[in-house]
């Protein structure tokens, strides 16, 4: 319970110690704490961003997948359609071709028939003349009756 100059010494020491703490102890720790807090909040924001971009990417990939599927289905449908068309065209082509062949054959047959008829006509005329010669035997003047024979030939 005795007061003396120790009091003053104590005040001085007190202030010096407090100033030391203020300058060398407090700021580094508080700085470290603040920096760590900033790091953590940054990390959390980063994680949040990552989660969002992941969700976005998932959505995007699903979208792409769906589009791809649609495209493929479209292509298949188109290919089928095209195949049908090609088959149809081939059928038409084949029919036309067949008709052509048939027509050519027909005309050839007709030509053949005409030639045959021509040759038959000649032969018939000869036969007729020969027949008539035989019938008439004696007096058929080929010259005198040539005109008549030609007219007969024409009628055949």
């Amino acid at each position: 319970m005795y007061l003396n100059a120790t009091l003053l010494a104590q005040i001085t020491v007190f202030i010096i110690l407090a100033l030391f703490t203020m300058k060398y102890v407090w700021p580094p720790i508080v700085k470290a704490l603040d920096e760590r807090a900033a790091k953590i909040s940054e990390g959390l924001a980063e994680a949040e961003r990552g989660r969002q971009s992941l969700a976005l990417a998932a959505k995007h990939s699903a979208e792409t997948m769906r589009e791809g599927k649609e495209k493929v289905a479209d292509m298949i449908a188109q290919a089928e359609k095209r195949a049908d068309q090609i088959i149809e065209e081939a059928k038409v082509q084949a029919r036309i071709e067949a008709e052509k062949v048939v027509a050519a054959a027909k005309s050839e047959i007709e030509q053949e028939a005409a030639r045959m008829r021509e040759s038959l006509r000649g032969r018939v005329a000869d036969l007729a003349v020969a027949g008539a010669e035989k019938i008439l035997r004696r007096e058929v003047d080929a010259k005198a009756h040539a005109e008549m024979l030609a007219a007969i030939k024409q009628d055949l």
Binding site: M1, Y2, L3, N4, A5, T6
Partner: peptide, 17 residues
């Protein structure tokens, strides 16, 4: 020696300081 008067600013306690 131990302080006798209640307040004496001529004395300083070495041990406390």
């Amino acid at each position: 020696h131990p302080q006798t008067s209640m307040v004496d600013f001529s004395i300083i306690n070495y041990d406390t300081v």
